[in-house]
Nucleic acid binder design. Structure first.
Lengths: 187, 187
DNA sequence: TTTTTACAATTGAATGTTCATTCGGTTTGC
DNA sequence: GCAAACCGAATGAACATTCAATTGTAAAAA
């Protein structure tokens, strides 16, 4: 692992554990074994480092979950497997997932980066909803924007409470939740 | 307004605007016209002040939205009006709402206070879901916990994106969203 | 009524700490 | 021998918190 990666890796973990304000550059240096000066060789500032962390993680998640999901003949199966991919990702990377959720609204992270990510996300999700729409499965008279927002709010919120330990999720519960979300958007 | 209230009031606004780390006790003192020493007369520490803000706002919201909602004969109407109460509250207090959402997961806020609030919330929400259950309206074989979590995730997520300006919500869209959530939980 | 007393409210300068960032220098790889 | 990678002590600003002193206040004592 390069020094740059070591810094990024250590910083995410520390920030999740103690919050941004309790994670000083000095501590990141000590914990990662990379000198303060070197951190500044790779990152302009602390804000820059944090924004970079956010950007990297979001892109990694998008690539794994949305951009690599394979369309299927049965659209309900496709819908289901997409959500399961997200759940799997969150299970395997709970720390990273929590970081993203917690800093989604943070004013520290550059607005341009947030927008870039948001657009990329919307583009990926639209693909599946366009297919559902063309098959006439979606509720009528409701805008695609609204349906996507409902979808995104439910899914992210539920995965978050799963990761936070607020609910248990075995295979059975996952199937039930996906069914609920599906019933919300289809006729 | 007492000095104590002045401090609380100024602090919420500043924290929403600039985040916790950019809101120093010195600045709160200057903006509120209350000396630093006086702030420490009323609050043990900065953490204590922030936790107090969180607690006050949550309780205010719970009282307005849940604990004062009046049961109705038609359960769909009751369900609908409860969600509308929350939307109305968020519209009227967007700054406070944003503060609560942003700091819901923050490690700064005392875990005991979070739990106290969480229990109070769950208790209020359970009332309506028990009624729906007794009427046999809910989907079968799904635990009440899961249904409530689905409800809470969808509603809070959607109101949040409304307040953040990510979606528009006229009366028509509100009705549609409530219908979607309802279809998710009922047979 | 006036004076005394006690205590709560209020003040802001002073303290000690922590922190992000810089910079002059050293090491490494090519 | 050159440039990029790397180092960590030094700097100065910002900050949370403390505290000795002052003011307000309300009740008890005179």
């Amino acid at each position: 692992m390069s020094k740059r990666e070591k810094v990024l890796d250590t910083a995410v973990k520390m920030i999740i554990e103690n919050g941004i304000q309790n994670t000083s550059m000095g501590k990141i240096s000590k914990n990662s074994g990379v000198a303060v000066g070197t951190i500044y060789h790779y990152f302009e500032s602390k804000e820059d480092l944090i924004t970079e962390i956010y950007r990297n993680l979001k892109i990694k998640m998008l690539e794994r979950v949305i951009e690599n999901s394979q369309p299927m003949d049965d659209l309900y199966d496709y819908f289901k497997s997409s959500i399961k991919l997200l759940i799997k990702y969150a299970e395997e990377n709970p720390i990273e997932f929590e970081f993203m959720e917690r800093h989604h609204m943070s004013p520290v992270i550059d607005a341009k980066v947030k927008e870039e990510i948001e657009n990329r996300y919307k583009k990926g999700v639209k693909k599946i909803f366009k297919m559902l729409d063309e098959e006439g499965l979606l509720k009528e008279d409701i805008s695609l924007e609204l349906i996507i927002q409902y979808f995104q709010s439910s899914v992210m919120g539920l995965v978050r409470s799963y990761i936070n330990g607020e609910i248990k999720m075995t295979e059975k519960e996952i199937e039930q939740l996906i069914q609920m979300i599906w019933d919300g958007i289809t006729k």
